[in-house]
Amino acid sequence: MDYLQAVVLGILQGLTEFLPISSSAHLRIFPEWFGWGDPGAAFTAVVQIGTELAVLIFFRHDIWRIATTWLRSLRRPEYRGQLDARMGWFIIIGSLPIVVLGVLLKDVIEKDFRSLWIVGTTLIVGGIVLGIADRVGSTEKTLKQLSLRDALLMGAAQACALIPGVSRSGATLSMGRFLGYERETATRYAFLLAIPAVIGAGVFELKEIPHGDNIYGWGPTIVATVVAGLIGYAAIAWLLRYVTTHSYTPFVVYRIALGALTLLLVATGTIAA
């Protein structure tokens, strides 16, 4: 049964990681609905490695170009003004807030923040913020106009996703829209920005898989991670096409509905917080 649950959770992770609806919230809420119990913060972090591997494969040409140009810029001044070199620094600096806060707040994140009261509330609040940002934000800026200040602000927004329900992509996209970036630009940068944080967190939590709060062993965790990567790859391609011609409104509605339903079920004692 553990392996069947792992496949379901892997599909859930792959479908929700890149959409602004919070994969960590879904991995916390749906197992509770099914009576499986909380899979744990370690399981959630490790399974997310699968979806980030999908990002590495999907954006492999962009990542290789950014990495090589950034490395050249360390030794050769003529490369330092190029967009790819600057993107390397933007991703590094933008990742600092979530890394620092993730280490400092590790115990709180793995225990207190996993309450469904918090998850349901952050789903609703995050949905409202995303809706406002998408409505009032302009679409003037492209990736070429990304600045160090904006990269750091989007990195700070990403750090809010340490609270399940916020959504890493949702928070980054909201800040990007508030700063005036077009949807595709904000989405693409959100994908790249998440790579160091997610893979780092997953590797950091690997030691907790056979212990800690994880209810699954290595086998189911690996299965869920592989499934998440396969589904996640398809989700990336779909989302990038979708945001070129559509708003984030469906995600806003879904977040608010799921958050409200979660709070209702907890309040009535149908599921435990």
Rank of each mutant, 00 (worst) to 15 (best):
D213H: 11
F30M: 15
P220H: 04
Q13L: 13
V227Y: 10
Y3R: 03
P20D: 06
R135P: 04
T221L: 06
I222N: 04
G131W: 09
A190C: 01
A273K: 10
A41T: 14
A67T: 13
I98L: 07
E208L: 11
L193P: 02
E17L: 07
I91F: 01
L179V: 09
T68W: 11
G170T: 10
I21Y: 11
A25V: 13
L258R: 01
L56I: 15
L192I: 09
W70K: 00
Y189S: 05
G102L: 13
F178E: 03
F178I: 09
P31W: 12
R60I: 12
T268L: 14
K111Y: 13
V203Y: 02
R135E: 10
I91D: 00
S73Y: 00
F204C: 02
L179H: 08
D38C: 08
I118N: 02
A133L: 12
V8I: 15
A85G: 11
P220W: 03
G94Y: 02
L12M: 14
R76Q: 12
P39G: 08
I222W: 01
S95Y: 05
V203S: 09
V125F: 06
Y254M: 09
Y79F: 15
H26G: 12
D150N: 11
G232C: 07
E184L: 14
Y242H: 11
I57N: 03
A161R: 06
G212I: 11
Y79W: 13
V129A: 13
W36D: 09
L104A: 15
P39H: 04
A224F: 01
A186M: 05
A224L: 01
P210L: 13
V108L: 13
Y189A: 03
A41Q: 13
L143E: 05
I91E: 02
L193W: 01
F34Q: 05
E17R: 09
L263Q: 05
